[in-house]
Every structure is written in C-alpha cells, then in structure tokens.
Design a protein around this nucleic acid. Structure first.
Lengths: 190, 190
DNA sequence: AGAAAAACGGACCATCGGTCCGGATGGCGC
DNA sequence: GCGCCATCCGGACCGATGGTCCGTTTTTCT
C-alpha cells in the first residue's frame, strides 16, 4: 500500500479547492491558507502533500496535461509517433494550446511560483524534448533546442489572456501554429 | 524646481543599492527592507520614490535600456531608421540581447514582479512596436504582432541563464538572431 | 483489540510589500 | 543671513503569505 485512504481523499479535496479558487479569483487569490480552508483540511496537510505552493500548482498542471503527454508518446498519429513531422507538430501545438488556453490563470500562477526551476521541470523538459525532435528532423540546419524554447516561451498565461479576444478562444493556438510553420520554413509546402 | 536635492541623492542611492543586492544575491534577495537599509534611507523613501517593488525594478531596467531606445528611435543606421530591415533587426536584437545578457537576474525579478502588467508596460510596448514594424515590412503575409511577442518572449531571465554557458556570453543573442532570421524566411538572402 | 505508522491540523514564525504620520530638511523670498 | 512652508524623510506598523512543527487523531496491519 502506498497511500492511506484519508491521504488520498484529502489530496483530491485540495486539488479541487485549488482549481475553484483559481477559477473564481486571480492567480494570487490562491494562498495555501485559503486552499486549506476551502478543502476542509489543515494547512500542514496541503504542504505535506505538495511540498510547496509551486508543487501544488505543478500537480494541477500535471493533471491537466498528462493525457496529452501519453498521446504524444504512445498514441496514434497525428499526435503520436509515425506521421509526417509537420502534422505531428500542428497536432501537438493544437493540444498544448488547448490546455494553455483553458488554464491561462493556472499557467501564470505556476510560472510565477516556479521562477527559475521552470527549465528543469520534468514536464517542461518533456515538451521541449518532443519539439526538439520534430524541429531537428524538419530543420537540421537550425538550433532545434533553442527554437523549441522559443515556441514554448509563447505559452505564457498573461500573454494568452492578452491575446485571446472574447469569442475566439482558439486564436492564440492558431497564431502559435502559424509561427511554428514559419519556423519550419517554406520547404515541403503541400 | 522638480526634485529636491536630498530626494535626488536618495534616488540614486536606492538604485545603486538595488543593483548591488541584485548582483550579490538572487532576484528574491532584493527586498524593500534590504534595499532601504543598504541605501541608508528609510523604507518609506524607497516606496515614495518608486511606487512599488515592481516600479523600482522597472526604473533600473529603464536606466539600462534607455540608450538603446534612443538609438533605435533617432540614431543612425543600422540601429536607427533608414537601413535595410534585416540589418536593423539584427542590430536591434544584438543591442537588446546584450542588455538582457548583462541583466538576466534583474530581468527575471522584474518579470516576476510585473506579472500580468508586463504586456502593457511602456517599455515592452516600445520594443514590441519596433519589432512589429520591422516584421510587418519583411513578412507582410504573417501576423507581425504575434511574431513580435514571440521574439520578445525569449528575453526571459531564467532562460538566458539557462542557455548561457560560461565563456560564451553572447551565445543567447546569436541564437535569438538565428531564430529571427528563420522567421524572416529565406527570401532576400544575400 | 491493540499498537505502530502515517497523516492531521492549526498555532506559530519570519518576512514581505505596502501604509502612515510626526518630525526633520531643504529651497525661496525677503 | 533668516525664517517660513512645502517637501521629503524614516521607521514603526499592518495584514497577508509561505513554510514549519509537534501534540493529537486516524488508519491499517496483525
């Protein structure tokens, strides 16, 4: 056995409380005190389970993106391995964009909390590695690692909010895809 | 008269103290208390002069970048108006990159403090407008506004620190330039 | 049932950004 | 040189926050 029943129950209570607070207030509305109170647990519990404020937000983000990660790693094309690079790229950006657009507030809160550790975060490293592979295959003449950082840098909560007009929730994603295509260059245009 | 002598003296003392703290500790080592103590002034003074922690960091950043702004607006080519777009772009990125590389810590501290206001900051808007103009001229087929955000998103303190190896301080700038060129596309290659 | 292990909870702490106001200080007119 | 008034100073003060700690409760295993 790895987790006691009450521990598991409390963990989901805390996560649900966090997303409620995230939804109804800004990102800085989520304080550990408030989360604990709303979840009906003690502050120590929140901390013990998630290590820190950053850990809590990371866990929530993980929950939101694990599905995409699986699909990218093991799923069927166009997301998963096997299809043409350009399609994989677009499908991946579509998926990541959807997550980002739906979690812009969480994204900025997490960014603020993580600060410097951002680039060593396993989740970031996975996205980066994936993009890296795709870019390297399509443009072996460029620095794929850097371009991958460049694309991921777009996924900033504040930027997304800034660029998403009411009534067109996918605008950001389309822009990201356009930029990615521009980076891939005109070669191989259908 | 616009500023009393002691006020001016204190302002520079505070700015110097801030940069010292920034240099010797991390970005979160710069608390208003510490700044005030090191500058030999009261906390209220720091606050009155700069409005907030974010304002203090912004002022410091402003001090570092005003020269580049002038050069871009009124200076001679290749930085200033008049030269070929591609050269202006490279020169601008070289200048901005140098500032960013020399102030990575300040950059992340400022980013954290500003959070959402980042995209309405006058300084950001200026850089963005400039890039926008250049990109729109070179690639009228793309969304210049978005691409400009994409390029500016690279200027993240943590990313710069992450990508700058000891012994090659300009590596980041070169990568940014390469990516910008990739965005401009192959058209017009010399 | 009983005991050890695991988890709980919330008081507690240091620190932070920001506010406020009585007191000091500088500039200007004389 | 002097005195007056606006301006500025300083640091005590505040509410909130992230994080810690330990006596108490709950779970689970035997």
């Amino acid at each position: 056995m790895s987790e006691r029943a009450d521990a598991a129950r409390n963990r989901v209570a805390v996560l649900r409380a966090t997303e409620r607070l995230l939804a109804e207030g800004g990102g800085d509305h989520v304080s550990l005190d408030r989360v604990a109170a709303l979840a009906g647990v003690g502050k120590g519990t929140v901390f013990r389970r998630f290590g820190s404020r950053a850990g809590l937000l990371r866990a929530l983000l993980e929950e939101r993106s694990s599905e995409l990660r699986e699909a990218v790693r093991d799923g069927a094309p166009p997301l998963g391995p096997g299809g043409p690079v350009r399609e994989r790229m677009l499908a991946f950006l579509d998926g990541l964009g959807a997550i980002a657009e739906g979690n812009a507030v969480l994204l900025s809160a997490h960014g603020q909390a993580c600060a410097d550790d951002k680039y060593t975060d396993p989740s970031y490293l996975f996205w980066h590695g994936h993009l890296c592979g795709l870019l390297a295959e399509a443009r072996p003449d460029l620095d794929a690692g850097f371009l991958a950082h460049g694309i991921l840098a777009l996924f900033d909560g504040a930027l997304i909010r800034h660029l998403t007009p009411p009534g067109d929730p996918r605008r950001f994603t389309r822009s990201v895809q356009e930029m990615a295509l521009a980076l891939l260059g005109a070669e191989g245009v259908t």
